[in-house]
């Protein structure tokens, strides 16, 4: 039974530098070799990896949608495993191809399209280094302005887990404890007061 799959592949930049179509054929060739049909395939992005894979710090991401028989998929993935130029892959069964994918993949087939040459392996974008922290923090503080009085950095799980910033429950607890304490004070204080009188 044929199924539709979405595949994301990390392709070695050395192959992309040589020829993009050759890099693309690493994946599309593997699909077609095992009787599959490639619906769309396009360059998703070229980016720095968050950790090294096979000694590479950067790679090109290829996003493909293809139909293939369920039984043929393990053989195809084995081919990908053996291929040194495909650093990593993720294949997921999906129900349909997103509509935007057709437009984006068609744009790649036009004559005007050219793949920018990937930078060197040690190249670091100036923007990307501080971005993750900055991008992660402001939405948290914006969405919870009442709670973001102090340091906007989220507290570790264990520390803040027992106490919530909501005003109702801590106050209620405090009132209960104080009420209990005043009762105990009164009970202890009564004999003293009687002695004074």
């Amino acid at each position: 039974m044929t199924k539709l799959y979405e595949g994301m592949y990390l392709v070695d930049n050395d192959v992309v530098r040589e020829d993009w179509n050759k890099a693309k054929a690493l994946v599309t060739g593997a699909v077609e070799k095992h009787g599959g049909k490639v619906v769309t395939a396009r360059r998703w992005d070229e980016r720095r990896l968050t950790y090294k894979i096979a000694g590479r710090r950067r790679a090109t991401y290829l996003l493909a949608y293809f139909e293939i028989d369920e039984g043929a998929l393990p053989a195809m993935t084995r081919d990908l495993e053996l291929n040194e130029h495909v650093l990593r892959y993720l294949q997921l069964a999906v129900e349909k191809v997103p509509e935007t994918e057709f437009e984006l993949s068609e744009a790649e087939t036009s004559a005007e399209f050219s793949v920018p040459e990937p930078p060197g392996d040690d190249y670091v974008e100036e923007e990307t280094a501080p971005q993750p922290e900055e991008a992660a923090r402001p939405p948290a503080s914006e969405e919870a302005p009442a709670a973001a009085e102090g340091d906007p950095a989220p507290a570790p799980e264990g520390d803040g887990a027992s106490e919530t910033p909501e005003a109702e429950t801590p106050q209620a607890e405090a009132a209960e404890t104080e009420a209990a304490e005043t009762e105990t004070e009164n009970t202890e204080g009564e004999p003293v007061a009687a002695q004074e009188d």
Binding site: M8, L90, P139, A140, S141, E143, A144, A147, A148, E149, G150, D151, P152, P154, A155, D159, G160, A161, S162, E163, T164, P165, P170, E173, A174, A175, T177, E178
Partner: peptide
């Protein structure tokens, strides 16, 4: 109240208060 209950932790717990993943589907 005579005194306020001391917080065990100095930092407040920041909640994102999202409405759910239906508004913006999660995608890797």
């Amino acid at each position: 109240p005579k005194f306020k209950k001391k917080r065990k932790s100095g930092r407040p717990l920041i909640k994102l208060r999202s409405r759910g993943c239906a508004d913006r589907p999660l995608d890797y």
